[in-house]
Amino acid sequence: MSERLGFEHVTKVYESAGADFVAFDDITLEASPSEFLAIVGPSGCGKSTLLKMAAGLIPPTKGKVQLGGNTVSAPPPGVIYLFQQYAKSLFAWRTVIDNVMFPLEGAPRSQRAELRARCEDYLRQVGLSGFENSYPWQLSGGMQQRVAIARALAADPQVLLLDEPFSAVDALTRMELQTLVLQLWERRKFTAILVTHDVEEAIFLADRVAVLSARPTSLKEIIDVGLPRPRDQLATREDPRFLKLRHHLTTSLLAKGSGHVVAA
C-alpha cells in the first residue's frame, strides 16, 4: 500500500534577528503512489527541511504538503522518516529487536508475540538475523542503518522518506544498502522519497530525479530516469544512459546561477 505525496507551493522562511532567511521558495513537486523519487541539490539548499515537512516534523511557512487527500500538519500515520544519523536515531538502551519493536509498542499485550515474530522477520529481511539481542553500539555503521530500516518497516510505511541515509557509511556498504532498499521497495511498494547530494545514488535508485538549485532554492528541473528494473550495481551503473544522466545532472548541479542548464 502506498500514498501520493505532494508539495504545493511550499516556502520556508526562517526568521532571524533583522533579516528573514528564505530556505526555499515556492516548490511544487509530487511523488506518485509507489514511485521512487529522488531530490538532489547542493548542500545547504534545504533538501532535508523539505523532507521533514513531508514527514510533518516541520511546518511550511507558506503552501502545504498533501498526503492522499489530506494536508499534513503533524506526523501522519504511515509516513516514516529515515534519518541520516542512524546512531542518533537508534535507542542505545534498547537491544536491536526492541528498537525494531518500538513503533509497535502501543499494540495490545496479547499481540506481542506475533509482532515480535514479525519484527524478527524484518531483521531477517535486512540481513540481521542473530543480532536480535545485540545493542546498536555493538554493530557497525552499516548494520545500525539496517536496524533503522527494519524499524521503519515495522511501522508499515506507505511513504518512506530517506534523508541521505547512506552518506555516513563506506562506499561498499553504501552499495549494499542501496540494493537492500531497492529490494524492500520492490517488495513492499511504498512511495519513496530520497534526498541526497550523490547524483549516482539518485539515478541508481529513483524513477525520477528532481534537481534543486542553490539558495535561494527553487526546483530547477525533473528528469525521468527510465532505466530498467531490477537495477544492478554493475550493469545499471555501466549503462550508457546512466552515464548520460550522470553527466547531465552533474553539469546541472555544478552550473552556477539558477535556471540555466547546459544540455548534455
Binding site: A55, P75, V79, I80, Q85, F91, F102, P103, E105, G106
Partner: peptide, 23 residues
C-alpha cells in the same frame, strides 16, 4: 538530547508521555 532522537519518536507518532518515559 539530540533532536534526531525526539524526531524519531515523532515520526513513529509516539505521544509526549511515552516519549518522556521511553526516550
Amino acid at each position: 538530547i539530540d533532536d534526531t532522537l525526539i524526531q524519531t519518536a515523532r515520526t513513529f507518532r509516539i505521544g509526549w508521555l511515552r516519549t518522556l518515559v521511553s526516550v
